[in-house]
Design a binder for these strands. Structure first.
Lengths: 222, 222
DNA sequence: GTCTTCTAAATTATCTATAATTAGATTTCG
DNA sequence: CGAAATCTAATTATAGATAATTTAGAAGAC
């Protein structure tokens, strides 16, 4: 397979690291040492530095000058912050996308919802969920807005995976269906209202840790 | 004067270039050649590359892999996009900041408004305006949200300077005063409504070009 | 005896210099 | 005149040097 010419080494490294951070393989707060990463990818440290900068721009890593870069930590406060930002921006995107939504797009979004309901694990569910949101928002044709929303989705996914690490129960997504129904009927305001609630709804769920203690976990669902 | 240790070369370069782009000294679409910039700053091109990446993350530059990076172009569509994003996010920030606004902060914001009214040029006005917005929004204590708003302000300033290049007429900012009055009275909803209108208001203004032709320029005011 | 403070070594980030690809322009040959 | 090959300029990546920070250990103070 020929290597993709439109892709630089730094971009590839940054994507791989982003996936690990989102998946939780890299602990929040843990250091990212450029020499180690460089060795792993068989590259030198300059492209690694550029990859780190990309991660920082996405909010997945934080860098203290001359002290290195760490995987971004997050707490409940930030989970809420990201959720509220998503709500504000996705509503805006939906308002502009609504006039351009076709029957075909809505059908595809419904298919994505079904795929989400039948997901065997969080990972699959998250992918289907993101597909749903992307489908109904992309027609707004506002590239900067969509890029911001993408970054927020990455952050959301991180929180999601940290809460539902192994266990996963499938369930039907009523919000998605309500949004689609409202859009089909041309009631954009109603769709916006449901979307706002949907994104901001933060589900709490008790999680049993290895020690047997029960801590409170959280997950953005939507 | 001792050099600031908490600041890397790449950051300094990026800030300087950002100022030039915002001020319009660097034409939209013009190429940023790393060797030239490196020579000017007496540095090598690695920190310059990192500076470019920062600019790209801010939306001030666009990079095509293996083809170099250019100053980001912008059109009326994007001006509107940035304005709408600002409206959505600033309203969110204000909602969370409102409970923490003190008398002292509002007084300082009023002072910033007065400074804006008496500004001799766009540059000074923009600075005062940004101070106003920052003052009333910072207490929301949502770092990610505030960072996004800052980037959008930079984009707005770019558009603003491109429209009001030399000529500038001072005028009193009624919106700012209305926002402050509503906040003092505890009517947060009203303040949010005015802020939304205020940010999204896009002033059009005919501008005479060097060739004598009249093109349409635009400016976000607020 | 424990804690602080100073010193030194090692670890790590940052920057410079150099080499290798790649895209774009020019020229040459059919 | 058009297409292909070459030449040039600029980006991308590597390797090595520099500077800063952190860690560890020893000496001194409480």
């Amino acid at each position: 397979m020929p290597k993709d010419k439109s892709e630089t080494l730094a971009i590839r490294i940054s994507r791989t690291l982003a996936e690990r951070i989102i998946a939780g393989q890299l602990e929040p707060g843990s250091r990212l040492r450029q020499d180690h990463v460089a060795a792993e990818f068989g590259a030198s440290h300059v492209p690694v530095r550029e990859a780190f900068q990309r991660l920082e721009a996405q909010g997945l890593a934080v860098s203290e000058p001359r002290r290195g870069v760490r995987v971004a930590a997050f707490d409940l406060r930030e989970v809420r912050e990201v959720a509220e930002m998503r709500a504000a921006l996705e509503v805006l995107a939906l308002r502009h996308a609504a006039p351009h939504l076709t029957r075909a797009i809505l059908d595809e979004a419904e298919e994505a919802t079904r795929a989400g309901d039948n997901s065997p694990d969080v990972r699959a569910w998250e992918e289907a969920n993101r597909r749903f949101h992307r489908l109904i928002l992309t027609p707004c044709a506002m590239p900067r807005l969509l890029a911001s929303i993408d970054d927020l989705h990455a952050a959301s996914a991180r929180f999601l995976f940290s809460a539902w690490r192994s266990e996963w129960e499938s369930r039907t997504d009523h919000d998605h269906r309500a949004i689609l129904a409202a859009l089909r009927a041309g009631r954009v305001d109603e769709a916006e209202a449901v979307l706002t609630r949907h994104v901001q709804w933060i589900g709490r769920k008790p999680v049993r840790t290895a020690s047997g203690a029960t801590r409170e976990a959280f997950a953005i669902v939507g």
